[in-house]
């Protein structure tokens, strides 16, 4: 592990301050997810949710390479981590998760549809691959407005087998749209192993079919994710067209609340747990276990406060039920 590369930067890329920020964000995401699971099991939230435990490295590595709130985010259903890494406020996020009026979507959207339009965060997706055609439109819009923004379109391995994937990458390519396609390959589309779902080694191999760059990186290595996204960002922001990054990671938990996980082995899960992104990054920056735990407690404290905020927030009023259907 490298502690002191080029110009004293961590991993050759991060200042110490930045690195601490990244590890804190990962710990916050982890705490949010652990708490979400607990609230669900206590019956404090209904519906379903998709936890990103084990995938925090992709979220923070990606956002740190872009310009959150300036660029556009088209998020994935398993998107709590990306939402927080994009600068989301944990209180309003928790309020949305619990269906409160103070939530980002006033309790109407919930975990699966959480958006922060003011931060150019165009929302998480309930439909696999649903954000991919939308990213084409966002790309066209950026070009029309002649800004230096890029759109980050995040989807899972499962989405790469929807027709929308093909149509979107092709259009983005022929029109050289400023869209970074981030495939967060967590090995399973619900219960379908990616090994059974495609017949090429990597999803990024498909980039060649569209004449665009495609790379695969270790999604649990924050430094590697950052570097890959930075290359993608430079390429895309300077007008060369779209770029496909595949970040390989692993979903520790089931797909959603009702998943018995009969389709995979405990050994496989354990093996991936040993590649856990937070501990790995802590080693890279030379942070001891004690300090990690200290910072974890700080993250948990923030989550506790967010729960208090959410629980003391008002429910949406039934008289307002039709609000928001039309402009």
């Amino acid at each position: 592990m490298v502690n002191s590369q080029a110009e004293g930067l961590i991993g050759g890329v991060f200042t110490r301050e930045k690195a601490l920020d990244l590890i804190d964000t990962m710990l916050l995401v982890r705490s949010f997810e652990e708490n979400a699971e607990e609230m669900f099991s206590l019956g404090k939230v209904h519906g379903t949710m998709h936890l990103s435990i084990g995938q925090e490295g992709v979220a923070v590595g990606t956002a740190s390479a872009l310009r959150p709130r300036h660029d556009y985010l088209l998020n994935v259903h398993r998107g709590h981590g990306h939402f927080l890494a994009w600068g989301g406020d944990v209180n309003r996020m928790m309020a949305e998760f619990t269906g409160k009026e103070t939530g980002y979507c006033r309790g109407r959207g919930g975990s699966m549809h959480i958006a922060d339009v003011e931060a150019n965060n165009l929302g998480a997706q309930g439909i696999v691959g649903g954000n991919m055609p939308i990213s084409v439109g966002v790309g066209l819009s950026i070009k029309a407005h002649q800004t230096d923004q890029v759109a980050l379109c995040i989807f899972g391995d499962g989405a790469s087998n929807e027709g929308a994937f093909h149509e979107s990458l092709n259009m983005a390519s022929i029109w050289k749209l400023p869209v970074i396609y981030l495939c967060e390959n967590n090995a399973y589309g619900m219960s379908m192993s990616i090994k059974k779902a495609i017949n090429v080694p990597h999803i990024s191999d498909r980039a060649s079919a569209y004449g665009i760059p495609g790379v695969t990186v270790d999604g649990n290595d924050v430094v590697e994710v950052y570097k890959a996204m930075k290359l993608a960002e430079e390429y895309t922001r300077s007008g060369n067209g779209p770029y496909l990054v595949e970040a390989e990671t692993y979903r520790w938990k089931g797909h959603s609340k009702s998943d018995k996980q009969a389709y995979r082995t405990r050994d496989e899960v354990k093996e991936w747990m040993s590649k856990e992104p937070i501990q790995r990054f802590a080693k890279v920056i030379g942070m001891g276990e004690e300090e990690v735990e200290q910072r974890r407690l700080t993250a948990r404290e923030k989550i506790k406060k967010a729960v208090e905020f959410a629980e003391s927030s008002p429910e949406p009023a039934v008289k307002d039920i039709l609000e928001g259907v039309y402009a």
Partner: peptide
């Protein structure tokens, strides 16, 4: 059903 998408909030959902 009311003239709207289904809301997430439990109470609103029941009223829809």
């Amino acid at each position: 059903g009311l003239d709207m998408p289904i809301p997430y909030n439990r109470n609103l959902e029941a009223h829809a």
